[in-house]
């Protein structure tokens, strides 16, 4: 069963065509990477999936149902959770409240274990649950953002540059968490700048440049620096 299908997706902001004819698939239990230089259209793709960017062509489907034209909140409530770029946590709310906001995306009739899911994956969140989220460190905020997405009990998790601005050690923690999330059966679509690490982690990685899919790499290509560089320069 395919979880998320993107088919010949095109996105346009005014005169600027951000993405042209992009197709990809995310199945349950796999991580799909989406890498490429700045402005390649990676974030736009995630926003289009969420219903927050103008889709001018193609389709986005979740288990066969088209998501195009739906409002962001409706997409979220159908089982797709986004960890937005820059984390976008609510600094004035407590950690607990941030996580409870994630429950807004829970589907009707599904329990999903509430906040424990986030606490089990990132124990630090339980410890800090009554603190203001704004005082957490960058890495902790990223864990909170991922935890917040997970409490919605989604089928597919979208991440927009989760390693941005984090120390290498923290990046390890985040990537390790992604592996655990995949192993729990979720489909993960990971947008990243750290190409090499992403290619090594993901089951497949698509290289996007100028809004178009350039090539697809497997984990075995991670050590092939030449090929990565060539992909970026193509």
């Amino acid at each position: 069963m395919t979880a998320l299908t993107v088919e010949k997706l095109s996105i346009r902001y005014g005169a600027v065509e951000a993405v042209r004819g992009l197709s990809l698939e995310v199945k349950p239990g796999e991580i799909v990477g989406l890498i490429g230089p700045n402005g390649a259209g990676k974030s736009s793709t995630l926003h289009a999936i969420m219903g927050a960017a103008p889709v001018t062509g193609g389709d986005v489907r979740l288990d066969g149902t088209s998501l195009v034209g739906r409002r962001p909140e409706d997409v979220a409530r159908r089982g797709i959770a986004l960890v937005p770029e820059g984390r976008r946590i609510f600094g004035e709310l407590t950690v607990d409240e941030n996580l409870r906001l994630g429950l807004a995306g829970r589907r009707r009739g599904r329990n999903g274990g509430g906040l424990t899911r986030a606490f089990d994956l990132f124990p630090i969140l339980r410890e800090f649950r009554s603190r203001q989220a704004g005082v957490l460190s960058g890495g902790q905020q990223q864990q909170l953002a991922i935890g917040r997405a997970l409490v919605a009990d989604p089928d597919v998790l979208l991440l927009d540059e989760p390693s941005l601005g984090l120390a290498p050690k923290i990046v390890d923690v985040v990537f390790e968490a992604l592996t655990q999330i995949r192993d729990s059966g979720l489909g993960v679509l990971l947008v990243e700048q750290r190409a090499q690490r992403t290619v090594a982690l993901a089951d497949r990685s698509h290289v996007l440049a100028n809004g178009e899919l350039r090539l697809t790499l497997g984990p075995e290509d991670a050590s092939d620096t030449d090929r990565l560089v060539a992909a970026y320069l193509a």
């Binding site: 409002r71 909140e73 979220a76 959770a81």
Partner: peptide, 13 residues
């Protein structure tokens, strides 16, 4: 605080 992000989390506008 941030309507856009809230909606992305499933908060119904």
């Amino acid at each position: 605080m941030d309507f856009r992000t809230a909606r992305l989390l499933g908060v119904r506008a």
